[in-house]
Every structure is written in structure tokens, then in C-alpha cells.
Nucleic acid binder design. Structure first.
Length: 156
DNA sequence: GCCAACGTTGGC
DNA sequence: GCCAACGTTGGC
């Protein structure tokens, strides 16, 4: 069963254009258990809203797909990496990542403010107060609503 | 296992 | 750069 997700990245660190340039890329650096657990349940083919955070405007930049299911995040073994974690060993890895590839870059960002204004998305995790998860599930109904309600906006 | 202190996220 | 809302750590 196909599942939908939303993944946040600061475009200064890794943007949707970077994904387009690089092709299938590891989503490394997640150091939050809840986000990790969500990634562990991802399957190849699952679809992902690529979200730009900590920028102007913050919002959904496009769509990606999962091209490799969860495997150990190698950046936690790299002592030079900002994501280095001595508690994660090769025998018992603590952190995992998936690979994703670009499906579609939107012609414009769908701003967070737009999503927040939409009453149909009131229950979406992303717009919930205090939601800081960098990887979160998206309901199929929310996914389809966002796409159908923004198609016009995106193509004009 | 509680919880205070500290660290991080991310919109604004 | 502020700060609310979380998550994590570690002493007890």
C-alpha cells in the first residue's frame, strides 16, 4: 500500500534543486527517533512532499519518491560529520535513512501560510502547533487535496 | 522513573 | 535573533 510523507530540509543545506542535480540521494542526518521510525516504515515507491524549512517562504517545493528503503545512516560513523554519533555502531546502528529521487519540482513553493489557511488541512500534522518533526506521514486525503487545490495555483 | 537543565527546531 | 514547543540527558 502506497504511503505519503512529508520531509523537511533547509534549502541552504539540501534543496529540491540539489536533489534534481544529484538524482537519487540519501536522506541523511535525521537524529530524531520518531522521524527515524517513520523512515523505517517507508517503502520503495512511497511519495514524499519535499518541504523547504527555515527559509522564505517555507513550504512544499515539490514531490519526491522513495527509491531505497531504510538502511543505516553512514554519516553517524564519520567523525568529521556534523551528524557523527559515537553511540551508533556498525553492529547496532542507531540511525537510518532512505534514498529519495525527484518526481516533480513545483513551479512555485506552496507556502506554509497557504496550507494553514485551508480548513481541510486543519488536522494535518504539519500545521499543528509545535510540530517539529522533520519526517511525518501525510494522509492520502490530505495529499490529494493539496495537489488538486494547488494545481491551478501552480500552473498559472 | 522523575524532572530540571539544556539543546534543537523552525516560524516569525 | 527571538522564543515557544519539543526532545534529550543525566543526577538523584
Amino acid at each position: 500500500m502506497l504511503q505519503y510523507w512529508l520531509m523537511k530540509s533547509e534549502p541552504d543545506a539540501f534543496s529540491i534543486d540539489d536533489l534534481k542535480k544529484q538524482g537519487a540521494s540519501p536522506w541523511d542526518g535525521v537524529r530524531n527517533y520518531q522521524a527515524r521510525n517513520f523512515m523505517k516504515t517507508m517503502k520503495v515507491g512511497d511519495l514524499v512532499f519535499f518541504y523547504h524549512s527555515s527559509c522564505q517562504p517555507a513550504g512544499i517545493a515539490g514531490i519526491a519518491k522513495v527509491t531505497r528503503s531504510a538502511y543505516p545512516d553512514f554519516t553517524c560513523w564519520d567523525t568529521k560529520s556534523a551528524y557523527y554519533d559515537p553511540k551508533s555502531t556498525k553492529e547496532t546502528p542507531r540511525w537510518y535513512m532512505v534514498d529519495i529521487d525527484l518526481v516533480e519540482k513545483f513551479s512555485r513553493i506552496i507556502p506554509l501560510s497557504t496550507l494553514k489557511q485551508d480548513p481541510e488541512l486543519a488536522n494535518m500534522l504539519l500545521v499543528k502547533k509545535g510540530s517539529r518533526l522533520s519526517v511525518m506521514p501525510v494522509q492520502a486525503s490530505e495529499w490529494q487535496h493539496i495537489l488538486s487545490s494547488t494545481r491551478f495555483y501552480l500552473t498559472h
